[in-house]
Design a protein around this nucleic acid. Structure first.
Lengths: 134, 134
DNA sequence: ATATGTGCAAATAATTTGCACATTA
DNA sequence: TAATGTGCAAATTATTTGCACATAT
C-alpha cells in the first residue's frame, strides 16, 4: 500500500550497509550516519532498517547477540559468528544453499519462503590468541 | 567452576520443556511453573533457562521473534516458523544435518562448534485459512 | 495539497542484576 | 557452614511509538 518516497537518510543507510561486510547493529549505523547527518535520530535509523529489510533491500540478522545486526548483501549466503570477538563473517557455499533450498521445497507441513543457516565458533585470529596464552 | 546444586525449580523447568514441542518463551515457562510453585519468580526462570542452555541440557532459540524461545530437545534438528501464527515446529532431516556438519568441518576461517538452520513460511493450517478467505 | 518521512522524547518489551534470605551438600 | 539458589524489585538494553514539523511527489 504505502507509496515509498525518497529520503536521503534511507539511501545513506542502504549505501552504508552495502559498503560494509561486518554486519553492524542499528547503533553502529546510527553513529556512522551521524557523521553525515548530525541530526539524524536513532528512531529514523530503526524505522528505515526495518523498512529496508521488509522490502528485501537488506537482511536483518536476529541471531548474533542481543542486538540485531544488518547485512547489505541479500544474495543467499550463511554466517559464522565468533563467540570470542563477536565478529560475524559471511560464508558462501552453493552446495549448502542448494541443500537448504531443497529441504525447504521438501518440507510438507507448510510453504517455506525464507531460510537461514548460522554457524558459531571461534575464528582463526582468536584461536591463535588462545594458543599463545596456553 | 561453580559447582551445580540441585534445585527443584530448575528440575521442573527442564521437565516442563521436555514435555512440550512448541518451544515456549521464558514467560510461558514462568506462567506454567507458577501452577506448581506459586512463588517462583521470572528472574529464577531466566537464570535457570540460561544456565540449562549453557550446560547443553536445553537449547535457546533466538531466531523466532522478539522473545527468545526454548527447546527441550537437544539432538540436532532444525526449525520452521509460521510467520502467520508464530508456531515453531521441528524439522528432522538427517541429510540436512549431515550437510551442515560438513559445511562446519570445511569452514576455513575458524572452528565451528554449533550450527543452526531455520526456515520461515506459512504452515498448512494457515494456508488453508487463507484459501477460504480468497 | 497530501502522503510520507524525520527528530525528539517518552513508552514498551525482554532480560538482567543486587541484595537479603532460603536451600543444598 | 559454606556455596549455591531464590524471590522480589529495580535497572538495563534494545526497540518502538506519538506527535509536531519537514520534505517529497
Amino acid at each position: 500500500m504505502a507509496a515509498l518516497k525518497y529520503s536521503r537518510q534511507r539511501e545513506s543507510i542502504k549505501e552504508f550497509l552495502r559498503s560494509r561486510t561486518d554486519h553492524p547493529t542499528a547503533d553502529t549505523v546510527y553513529e556512522n550516519l551521524r557523521q553525515i547527518y548530525p541530526s539524524i535520530s536513532l528512531g529514523t535509523v530503526y524505522r528505515n532498517l526495518s523498512l529496508l529489510s521488509d522490502i528485501g533491500e537488506i537482511r536483518k540478522l536476529t541471531n548474533f547477540g542481543s542486538a540485531d545486526r544488518y547485512d547489505g548483501r541479500v544474495a543467499p549466503h550463511s554466517h559464522f559468528m565468533c563467540t570470542r570477538c563477536n565478529r560475524v563473517i559471511d560464508m558462501q557455499s552453493d552446495r549448502l544453499n542448494g541443500i537448504l533450498e531443497q529441504a525447504a521445497a521438501e518440507f510438507i507441513h507448510g510453504k517455506v519462503f525464507d531460510v537461514d543457516a548460522s554457524f558459531y565458533g571461534i575464528c582463526k585470529e582468536c584461536l591463535k590468541k588462545e594458543e599463545k596464552q596456553a
